[in-house]
Design a binder for these strands. Sequence first.
DNA 1: GCCTAATAGAAAATAATTGTCAATAGAAAA
DNA 2: TTTTCTATTGACAATTATTTTCTATTAGGC
Lengths: 138, 138
Amino acid sequence: MDTNVTQLLKTYELKVTPQRMCIVEELMKNGHLSIDELYEKIRERFPSLSLATVYKNIHAMMDKNFIKEVKIPNVKSKFELTKNDHAHIICEKCGKVEDVDVNSLSIIKEVEEKSSYKIDHTDLIFSGICPECLTKES
Amino acid sequence: MDTNVTQLLKTYELKVTPQRMCIVEELMKNGHLSIDELYEKIRERFPSLSLATVYKNIHAMMDKNFIKEVKIPNVKSKFELTKNDHAHIICEKCGKVEDVDVNSLSIIKEVEEKSSYKIDHTDLIFSGICPECLTKES
DNA sequence: GCCTAATAGAAAATAATTGTCAATAGAAAA
DNA sequence: TTTTCTATTGACAATTATTTTCTATTAGGC
């Protein structure tokens, strides 16, 4: 996995540093993390890492399209590794964020017809209650 | 329209002040505004208004569900008066934000089936090029 | 191993948002 | 109306969030 991360960083033209590897590994492990969550996670393994470095790397990685920001209502932005297009679901109870593949072709078509825009990108966030919280709740 | 705004504020249990009326009027006129845009617009008519007051009112109005925050990729959040559920389109060229009504029932159903979440809310942002910029561009 | 440009970390600088507090202004009651 | 009470305003300070600056260090090519 180390090699994996190294390769990944190189693919995106990012110099391989221990700090960056750490960031990527945490994102692989956790999926979606805010700046603060990321910083805390990493400090457990890498106490010397500074917050400014997290910010700088987040930007460097976004510039290379290696990671993406996910803006979610009511909470701080999360970051994730870039993957195939997908939507996000957030549980309003426990705050968990998950990916979900949806077929957005028809809704894009609908939007294009109604608006006359040429759409090239979507950000779809669904909020609700996850199956785990649903069972606990009833 | 004055009376209109006054009534609106009262409906949402918000004390009617000139500052608030100004905020609401600008949102009615412009549709979607960031904090800064709102502040600038209002200062033209109401130079004494302070930025802190804008923030405080934005929060008061969000608490009463009178306005909503719209989080858009790459740009600062915009605020809009609460209306019927709708999606948003942003033009990547000129930055214009518009509402669009979409039928999201089937996509919600798809998400619920794939994720086992119970979805109660969606935030759908579509990015692309608006018809005006499309014509200019070619 | 050596060289060069990029990166990390500490700290300061800037930007964004929120809190404090005295003065004032809505709105309800007298 | 006038009075009273509480919420709001605006100036300012305080926080919080993010970015920049600067120097020492390090990655990666030769």
